[in-house]
Structures are given as structure tokens and as C-alpha cells.
Nucleic acid binder design. Structure first.
Lengths: 217, 217
DNA sequence: CCTCAAACTGAGGATTTATTCATATCTTCA
DNA sequence: TGAAGATATGAATAAATCCTCAGTTTGAGG
């Protein structure tokens, strides 16, 4: 399940002094800005360095190559996202299934739409890359957090909780992504969020009904 | 809603003689094979021509540039996919909502998984491209086909059929794509398909229940 | 069989871009 | 203060790749 990061994508060194941290931060920021503005195909290390206000050489002190830079940017983004989801899951422990799914949807939705341009740019940038480690780490973290949450539900169905979780996350993550594709460049249709909540809740109800334990009520 | 194809991506000329059609076909095939094998970043026009058994010059007689080639390959693929979906929708006219969704899921699932490697390769290749026209044409066609189908259902809910259709398609397309991302390189988990059917059916039931008309029964 | 358009060839021009490294400048802290 | 490590510089290198075009071959219709 755990896939290790290809060595060619590992960062070269970590900043030790304060100015180095600032440099790194500027590089990340510049990369995102350029990805948003012109897309991956127009992104060159020289341009990134220029926009970040440093020289190319500096960039190459932290990243062994261009790929590693893109990788790192996505890593930071996904780490933050996974963290948000995890926090939301923890906060809902012991609650009812229904409000759990809604929290999950709203949290993810919010995170993705609050900076739609960045979301779109990164969706595009991860693709053409050796991103298996990245994706699988993200999946593992979110799956674990959600499974733990759902298992703690006061009305948890006795159906395989891992399966149910996986289905729900797949649907939420996938639907949101598809919504971004549909909305070519404009805003994301919020009506979908409502319907997604209805659909997931309906699914959970269906799980609870088909559950032999529920007859006890 | 209709977005036109950027002129820089338009095909240069259409084949008139039989050998030209064969050449074009060979170029498409070679492109797909290379995308599957090495990905977009390793794809060069020279390599495509070589594998297709023609010279680069020939390739450039049909496509003004590399992008246009990738574009065309995806266009052919999406056209075929949209056609399959349309056919399935037509075949289910007048049926019950439930079997309609299931057909939709199974058709799309089948189409995407029967050649998973190609699916994956194309998912990756469309991204870094001016693909708005492509996507919106596909969406328009499938939406129209599905809306028409659902509207003909004997048990159609009176809820906005366009909304319901959009939600269902978004969820199906999105979930399938996410399933591909989760299954790094291996086979796609078929358990998800079952659950997706359950979820969509549950959603439709919920729509029908909240429907004032349904009280008439 | 002959002619003309369609189809094909592929070496090379032009440009772009990733990455290095010898050198210079800052920070820290003893 | 001064030495040593950390950080930054950016011209230069080396490689890759897109795409053109002048010329050749093929096929179809008369």
C-alpha cells in the first residue's frame, strides 16, 4: 500500500537559516502563480526563479530537477488538505452518520473551491508525473481518518465500514473533480453540493436499512 | 455552452485515398501505444511517426502541431464513448429509473475498464491541453442523451430532470475517474461498481419520495 | 499509357530549456 | 572579529525536439 517517493523527486536540502525558508516559500508561491497563469507546459525553472526573485541556481539547490519542484508543491497542498479533512473527521467523532457525510462533503468542497484557480492548476499539474506515492499517501490518510470517524458513529451500519468509507470518499472526491471539469473556467455549481449531500445520505440510509442489526430497533 | 475548437488544433486535411486513411489510422494507433508506454512527456512527433511506419513530414501533413495530434486522439476516443452512452440511453427509453441508472453505470464502467491502460493514458494526456471544446462537447452530448432517457421514465420524478441527470453523470464519471486514481496501476475495484449502483438508486428513490406527485400512488 | 494531384520523405534549421559550477555573498557563533 | 558553513549567483553547456520544405513516389481518371 505504501509507495515510496522516487529518489529523483526528493528535495535536495532543507533550509536552515531564515532567509532560506523565505526563498523556498517564494519559490513555491511563484510556481503556483505560474501554473495558474500559464499551465505546466509553459513553466520553466528560469521563469520560476525569476518570479520568485532568486536565481535559477538557487532553485537547484533545493530541488534536483523541475519534476521535484512540481512534486513538492503538490505535496504541500495535499498534506494541508489531508490535515483539514482529518481535523474535520476528528471533530465529528461519535456523531450521527448523516452529519458526518455532510461535514465531509462541505469540508472538501470548501477546500477545493475557495481557490478554484489553484485547484484547477494543481489538478492539471499532478497528472504528468510519477505521483503514485503522493496520491496513495493522501488516500491512506483520508481513508483512515474517515473510517475512524464512521466507525464511531452512534448509528453506524454493520456493513463493512472500510468499503462504505471508500465508496463515499471516491464519490465525493470524484464528483468534485468532475464538477471542476464541467465548469470550464467559471465558478463551481453549488447545486451539486446539495445533491451530493442528499445522495450520500440516501446511500447511508440504504446501508442502514439493509443492515440486519437495524431490525432490532 | 458551445466552445469552438482552437484553430491551432484543427486537423490540416482529411485523407482522400485509401492509403492516406491507413496512414492516419497508424498514426493514431502509434500515438496511443506510446502514450500508454511512456506517457505524454516522452511523446515526440518523430517517435510517433517512426512507430507508425511513416515519416515525420507525413504526420505534419495531417496535424499542424503536436497538440493537435493529442487532441485528435482524444476526440476520436470521446466521440466513440459518447456514442456508446447515447446508444445505451436510447435502448432504455421508457424503462424504469432504476434500470436506467444501472445501465448508465455499467455502460460507462465497461467502456472505461475494458482497456484500462488506454483509459489511464488518455486521462493523463487530455489534461495539459486546450481541451475545453472537447470536454464541453462530450458533456453536452451525454447530458442530452441521459436527460432524454430519464424524462421518458415511467416513474420519472417531477424534480428538475436536468439537475438530477447532471448530478448522476457527475457522480458516475467522477467516481470512475477517482477509482482509476486509487488503483495506481492495478485493476479497478469492481466492488465500487455495485455500491455506485446502490447509491444512485437510493438517490433516485429519495427524489421520488420527496416528489409531491408520488403521493398520488 | 500519361498526367496531375495526392501522399510521402527525412535531413537539418531554429529555438527552447534543464541543469551545472566556479565564484561571490551572507550568517552564525566561538 | 574572523573563520566556516550556508546560501545565492547567472553565464555557459549540452541536449532535445518541433516543424519545414524541396524534392520524390504513388495512385486515379481519362
Amino acid at each position: 500500500m505504501d509507495i515510496e517517493v522516487p529518489s529523483s523527486l526528493k528535495r535536495r536540502k532543507s533550509p536552515q537559516q531564515r532567509r532560506a525558508s523565505a526563498t523556498l516559500e517564494a519559490i513555491y508561491e511563484a510556481t503556483i502563480q505560474l501554473l495558474v497563469k500559464d499551465g505546466l507546459s509553459e513553466l520553466t525553472t528560469t521563469r520560476v526563479a525569476e518570479r520568485a526573485g532568486v536565481s535559477v541556481g538557487t532553485l537547484y539547490q533545493y530541488f534536483p530537477n523541475k519534476q521535484a519542484l512540481i512534486y513538492a508543491v503538490n505535496e504541500v497542498y495535499l498534506d494541508a488538505l489531508a490535515e483539514k479533512i482529518k481535523a474535520a473527521c476528528t471533530a465529528r467523532r461519535g456523531d450521527v452518520m448523516e452529519s458526518m457525510v455532510e461535514t465531509l462533503i462541505d469540508t472538501y468542497w470548501q477546500a477545493k473551491t475557495e481557490r478554484a484557480d489553484v485547484t484547477r492548476a494543481l489538478y492539471r499539474s499532478v497528472v504528468e508525473m510519477d505521483n503514485e506515492a503522493l496520491i496513495s499517501a493522501f488516500i491512506a490518510r483520508t481513508d483512515a481518518a474517515a473510517v475512524a470517524m464512521f466507525a464511531s458513529a452512534s448509528d453506524a451500519p454493520s456493513t463493512d465500514p472500510v468499503l462504505v468509507t471508500r465508496v463515499i470518499l471516491t464519490v465525493i472526491f470524484g464528483a468534485v473533480r468532475n464538477a471542476f471539469e464541467r465548469a470550464v473556467a467559471g465558478p463551481i455549481d453549488d447545486g451539486l453540493r446539495q445533491q451530493l449531500r442528499i445522495m450520500c445520505v440516501a446511500y447511508i440510509r440504504a446501508m442502514q436499512l439493509s443492515d440486519p442489526m437495524s431490525l432490532a430497533n
